[in-house]
């Protein structure tokens, strides 16, 4: 591919990797704290999956930019400041209630599966291959989330209330999910258009939520910021996730 396309696709892949890595970090925070043992284990493993996916996207970006495949992912993860990250705001929001984390995962995973379905058809073969691998794994993520919607949404009065509160808090951050990603405008045929994924996402999500007696808020104030803008929570998150790597940059792991 041409250099210009390479740079655009690398930007796109780094944004995808950023989404996965930040979500992975938030999910990993439940390790040792989740409300039941099975979910403690499940969230740790979901986080491991996303970490692996982030690494795959970053490695593909490294190839396109002619960077070292081993070192570039570490550079991206550990040595960028908040302003250099391109993840959506949804994934960096602090955990709080467990209902919030389950629902966030679900909202994100449904989109991811839709996007991967398109990426599997990419004309750039290494991308299509990675997408096929990740797609299979993400189907299990959606399955996990979908199992919890009715359990909590139709469980007790309290569990329903907490799920609906989580949905009200998360919903304003969903429009940003459908903004074109960095580099995307030049990648026709290589990646699916992100705005084009919204209709399918909305149909699936609204149906699943309704079957769990949950409803998106009628009035919400959309937080549709560009991906170059991060929440204030990113600083805290990065200071924790990057602390060890930055403490000794020469360390070998």
């Amino acid at each position: 591919m041409e250099t210009r396309l390479n740079a655009g696709l690398a930007e796109y892949l780094i944004a995808l990797g950023d989404d996965e890595l930040i979500l992975s970090h938030r999910d990993s925070e439940w390790c040792g704290h989740a409300p039941i043992l099975e979910e403690d284990i499940a969230f740790a493993n979901l986080a491991v999956d996303e970490l692996g996916h982030a690494r795959l996207w970053y490695e593909l970006a490294a190839e396109l930019l002619d960077e070292d495949k081993e070192r570039f992912p570490d550079h991206l993860a550990y040595f960028r400041d908040a302003s250099e990250w391109r993840n959506v705001q949804l994934v960096s929001l602090p955990n709080g209630d467990w209902a919030f984390s389950v629902l966030r995962r679900y909202l994100f995973d449904v989109l991811e599966v839709e996007r991967l379905r398109g990426l599997k058809q990419s004309s750039y073969k290494p991308l299509a291959e990675a997408a096929a691998k990740i797609y299979n794994e993400e189907l299990y993520h959606v399955r996990h989330g979908r199992a919890w919607l009715p359990r909590l949404g139709l469980g007790t009065e309290e569990s329903h209330r907490r799920m609906q509160t989580a949905l009200n808090d998360l919903w304003p951050f969903t429009p940003q999910l459908f903004q074109a990603l960095p580099g995307e405008s030049e990648l026709s045929g290589v990646v699916p258009t992100t705005p084009g994924l919204e209709a399918e996402w909305r149909t699936k999500v609204v149906a699943d939520l309704a079957s769990a007696n949950l409803n998106p808020p009628e009035k919400s104030n959309p937080m549709n910021r560009p991906r170059t803008q991060q929440t204030e929570h990113m600083m805290d998150l990065l200071s924790e996730s990057q602390m060890v790597a930055r403490a000794n940059v020469e360390a070998r792991w």
């Binding site: 099975e38 979910e39 284990i41 499940a42 493993n45 979901l46 491991v48 999956d49 299979n136 794994e137 299990y140 399955r143 996990h144 199992a147």
Partner: peptide
Amino acid sequence: LKNSFGSTPCRMIYYCNNCSQPFEQFRPL
């Protein structure tokens, strides 16, 4: 099926209603 994520990303947690034994399955993929 108790959980689609077990002790590693490649395992799921099941419960046997016959012998009352929880067990893991290596996930189909």
